[in-house]
Design a protein around this nucleic acid. Structure first.
Lengths: 146, 146
DNA sequence: CCATATAATGCAACATGATGCAATTAAAAC
DNA sequence: GTTTTAATTGCATCATGTTGCATTATATGG
């Protein structure tokens, strides 16, 4: 409940109106903080609460939440785009294996090293979200070599 | 000419057949090594050489070249996907400003730091391509703060 | 050079995402 | 509570990618 209120406040603070669609969407992310949700999943859920809700409204609201760094969008190869709740969560990067598709959460140490390098070398800041690395995990490196 | 032959060899080595579409596509990338090409640009060019060439063939060939690390795909906000030649080029990351959309090539130092961190911390390798950072460049940081 | 196996293409249909505009609804002002 | 006004929504349409399948073309082996 607290997070819901905080998020409503965040939206208001950014001159965003509070609509039923937005309430349900926020709650859905709050209730699934660990999941990487696909659009069909989100749409199916909202359809329950608000029959007839339009695809484009969902896309527009996801875009808005992305802008406010409430959610993060990530492209999982072969699975389309996914959306994950990141508001007041421990921030991290994602690392995706190009061979087996495994998604790993980068740890704090990696995050800080990358952050520091971006700041020091290119004077880029707040590059904390929406970063996804693609490579080969240790298991698939072995397979590739063999 | 040399690069063209090298690339043809690379394709053959990976059990890929050499078709007219692939030759023209490769040559187009060779001739525009610095450009971040959009699909419409690529399609328009190929249309000249091979009238009636189909969208899906281009997509499939771009996907194949991505797999072979001949090209890199990057999503520029507000401009859709772009494709850049990276074969035998100096490898680097891209840094994109979320505010002004400016695309910056990350330098060698950044690349090595990130590479090292990924290897040491998560045992991920060859994570050299397809990495795009989104953040705020120094100019837009100032604007945001003001 | 010709026959064969199989990969690439074109095509049609579908999936996903974006956009302009009229109708609706949230918020603010009275 | 009613009115006002501006943002959000739904809808239609378009743009961009993806996929299954029949057709075509490349590579290979005789």
């Amino acid at each position: 409940m607290k997070k819901h209120k905080d998020l409503i406040a965040l939206l208001r603070h950014n001159q965003q109106r509070i609509t039923p669609a937005r309430r349900f969407l926020l709650q859905f992310f709050i209730d699934n903080p660990a999941k990487r949700l696909s659009l069909p999943e989100i749409q199916a859920h909202l359809q329950d609460k608000l029959p007839g809700i339009n695809r484009s409204s969902i896309y527009r609201n996801l875009e808005m939440l992305k802008q406010l760094s409430v959610i993060q969008e990530l492209g999982v190869p072969g699975q389309g785009k996914r959306y994950q709740f990141v508001f007041e969560q421990q921030v991290h990067h994602f690392i995706i294996c190009k061979a087996c598709g495994k998604v790993v959460k980068g740890n704090r140490n990696l995050f800080e090293k990358v952050e520091k390098a971006l700041k020091e070398i290119h004077d880029f800041q707040k590059a904390n979200l929406s970063v996804t690395f693609y490579g080969f995990c240790s298991k698939c490196q072995a397979v590739e070599a063999g």
